[in-house]
C-alpha cells in the first residue's frame, strides 16, 4: 500500500505520471466524474485548514466519491485523548483513503504504520505539505510548459517556509536556477544548501526583490511575519521590500508567473490580482486537480 507522507516519496517517473493524469483530468473532466463512485475519503484535520480540506473534499466529490471526517480535533470527544494508532485503525476501517492534517511533525508517518488504507499527509506542522508541492509543480508545468531551465525566484520567509523547502528540493532535480530573495534572518537553512551543492544546482541569495525580478521566470511569494524578526527595526526596514506591487512588477518579464501558496496577507498587493502574470488563483484550482490525480493513483482506481 502506498502513502504520501514526504514529497520525496514520489520518484520523478511517478511525478510525471501524476502530472500527466492531472492534465488529462483538466482536459476531460466528465470522463472522471464517476470513477470513485462508492469510495470514501476520510479527512482527519487535527487542526483547522479550511482551504486544504475543501480542496481534498472537492477533489473526491468531483471523482464521484464521498467524504467523511472532522476538521477540529476538539470537536470530537472520541478523538480527544485517543491515540493516533487507535483513531487511524478505526477510521481506516470505514474509509478507502485518508487525508490527514496534524500540528505535530511526523503524525501522518505514524498513522501510516497503523492504517489499513492509504494516508495522504495534508500538512504536519513545520514538516511537509506534499500536495502543496505537487500543486506548485503542476502549476509551473502548465504555465511554462516545462519543468527545467527555469529561473525560479522564491521570496520572503525562506527559513521556516516548508513549502519553499519542498519546492526547492523537487525543482532542483530538473536543472533550474534559484534566486532566493529574503532578509538575512530568513535565509534557507544549511541543509537545503547542502542538497543544492550535491545536485550541482545553481542558486543565489539576495536581499532585494527589485534587483532580480527582471531575471525571473517564476516568482514564488511567501509571507514575512513580524514575529520572525529579532527586532522591530529590521522588520520596519525590510517589510516593504518583500511586498509585490504594480511598481515592482513593471520591472518583471511579460511571461513571469507569480505563485503563492495562499492565504496571503499583504505580501502581494490586491492591485496585482488583475495582472495576467498573477497565477495564484489558477494554482488553487490546479491544487484540486492534482489531488484528484493523487487519489486515483493511491486508490489504484486508474
Amino acid at each position: 500500500m502506498r502513502h504520501l507522507i514526504d514529497p520525496m516519496d514520489i520518484s520523478m517517473t511517478e511525478l510525471k505520471d501524476l502530472l500527466d493524469l492531472a492534465e488529462e483530468i483538466i482536459k476531460k473532466k466528465e470522463d472522471f466524474n464517476q470513477v470513485c463512485k462508492g469510495k470514501i475519503l476520510g479527512t482527519l484535520f487535527y487542526e483547522p485548514s479550511t482551504r486544504t480540506r475543501l480542496s481534498f473534499e472537492a477533489a473526491m466529490l468531483r471523482l464521484g466519491g464521498s467524504v467523511i471526517g472532522f476538521s477540529d480535533a476538539g470537536v470530537s470527544s472520541a478523538i480527544k485523548g485517543e491515540s493516533i494508532p487507535d483513531t487511524i485503525r478505526t477510521v481506516s476501517s470505514y474509509v478507502d483513503i485518508i487525508a490527514m492534517r496534524h500540528p505535530k511533525e511526523g503524525a501522518p508517518k505514524l498513522a501510516s504504520y497503523y492504517s489499513f488504507v492509504p494516508i495522504i499527509n495534508a500538512g504536519d506542522g513545520g514538516h511537509y505539505h506534499p500536495t502543496q508541492t505537487l500543486t506548485d509543480i503542476l502549476t509551473i508545468r502548465l504555465k511554462k510548459g516545462q519543468l527545467s531551465n527555469l529561473t525560479i525566484g522564491l521570496c520572503g520567509d525562506l527559513k521556516f517556509g516548508r513549502t519553499v523547502h519542498s519546492l526547492i528540493k523537487s525543482m532542483s532535480s530538473y536543472g533550474n536556477k534559484f534566486i532566493l530573495i529574503s532578509p538575512q534572518e530568513l535565509q534557507i537553512p544549511q541543509y537545503i544548501k547542502m542538497e543544492l551543492f550535491n545536485k550541482n544546482s545553481s542558486f543565489m541569495e539576495v536581499e532585494s526583490l527589485e534587483d532580480v525580478i527582471d531575471k525571473l521566470d517564476i516568482l514564488y511569494m511567501t509571507r514575512v511575519q513580524r514575529e520572525r524578526f529579532f527586532n522591530e527595526e529590521d522588520y520596519i526596514r525590510l517589510k516593504d521590500s518583500y511586498i509585490l506591487d504594480k511598481e515592482k512588477l513593471k520591472l518583471a518579464r511579460k511571461d513571469l508567473c507569480i505563485l503563492h501558496p495562499l492565504p496571503r496577507v499583504n505580501e502581494i498587493s490586491y492591485e496585482v490580482d488583475d495582472d495576467p502574470r498573477a497565477c495564484y488563483f489558477e494554482q488553487v484550482k490546479y491544487g484540486m486537480y492534482i489531488r484528484m490525480a493523487l487519489i486515483l493513483r493511491l486508490l489504484g482506481v486508474m
Binding site: K177, K193, S201, S202, M204, E205, V206
Partner: peptide
C-alpha cells in the same frame, strides 16, 4: 561559489 551563491 561564495557565502550566498552557487552559480555557473
Amino acid at each position: 561559489i561564495d557565502e550566498s551563491k552557487d552559480i555557473f
